[in-house]
């Protein structure tokens, strides 16, 4: 079964951009657009590799960044056409980033205030609704997702260096083989064998599956019967003396044929 983990990862393209700007210690008013664009795209790739769903908004921002980058590569318009320099292609983006950053720091203030105020209780059995409807807090202590993603990136880079090749052997266990094995054991133990004992010695997953299918197959063919002497107890597998007499349920308990 696939284990799906959903992360709050980057809270959006602006969050990711601010993270990159901070990490590179560059001025928000003079973003080295080529470098940041490259890193932004690398981050998207990593998110995809991690199976983090990359929302459409991230792709839109990637396109915006590339557009700004290409506009900055164009030579400035000749002086005779424009007295002043044209607007910086980055201006709009910077404005968005600034506004977003303002609310981000306000959110940070909210968080620290709320941290105090969720620990203040009024009188009475009635709890404030935000306390009453509670589920365990699963937020990682002081780790931000960006820290984790950076760390993982590092690990992946190091792992890439190792190009060792391993051959994987395919296990050759068939249901037919397991039927033969089960039959051999039943012949050796006329009083029956324990179901559990079929799986006790070290076995691989494939062997377990094949053995279980072997039991089902022999049951279907009416060659064995399975009894459970005690509720929740172990199952016993016995050979059926062919042809079976009606009503011959074997030992006490439930019998499956």
């Amino acid at each position: 079964m696939a284990y799906v983990v959903e992360l709050d990862a980057f809270r959006g393209p602006l969050d990711l951009l601010l993270h990159l700007i901070q990490k590179n210690e560059v001025d928000i008013y003079d973003i080295p657009i080529a470098r940041i664009t490259d890193q932004y795209l690398a981050a998207l790739k990593l998110m995809e590799a991690l199976d983090i769903e990359v929302a459409g908004e991230f792709i839109v921002m990637a396109a915006t960044l590339m557009e700004i980058k290409s506009r900055m590569l164009l030579p400035p318009a000749p002086k005779e056409y424009s007295e002043e320099e044209g607007p910086d292609p980055r201006a709009e983006l910077v404005q968005m980033l600034e506004e977003y950053r303002r609310y981000q720091s306000a959110a940070e203030l909210f968080r620290s205030r709320a941290e105090v105020w969720t620990r203040v209780f009024p009188r009475g059995g009635e709890l404030p609704p935000e306390v009453a409807a509670l589920v365990p807090d699963t937020e990682l202590a002081n780790l931000s997702v960006s820290t984790l993603v950076d760390a993982l990136h590092q690990v992946l880079l190091e792992a890439e260096a190792d190009h060792g090749v391993t051959a994987v052997q395919r296990e050759r266990v068939t249901v037919r083989m397991q039927i033969a094995e089960l039959w051999r054991r039943l012949n050796a133990n006329p009083e029956g064998v324990s179901f559990r004992s079929l799986f006790t010695h070290p076995v691989t997953r494939v062997e377990v599956i094949a053995m279980f299918l072997a039991v089902l197959e022999l049951l279907r063919l009416g060659r064995i019967c399975v009894v459970q002497p005690h509720t929740f107890g172990d199952l016993r597998i016995q050979k059926v003396a062919a042809p079976t007499a009606p009503g011959d349920g074997g030992a006490a308990g439930t019998a499956v044929r």
Binding site: D8, R11, Y103, Q104, A106, A107, E108, F110, R111, A114, E115, T118, R119, F121, L127, E130, V131, A132, A133, L134, V135, P136, D137, E139
Partner: peptide
């Protein structure tokens, strides 16, 4: 009271702000 204060996610706090 057997309760555990629950925190809002950062995304929720930003939106709230």
């Amino acid at each position: 009271l057997r309760v555990q204060p629950q925190k809002l996610s950062r995304a929720a706090l930003e939106t709230l702000a």
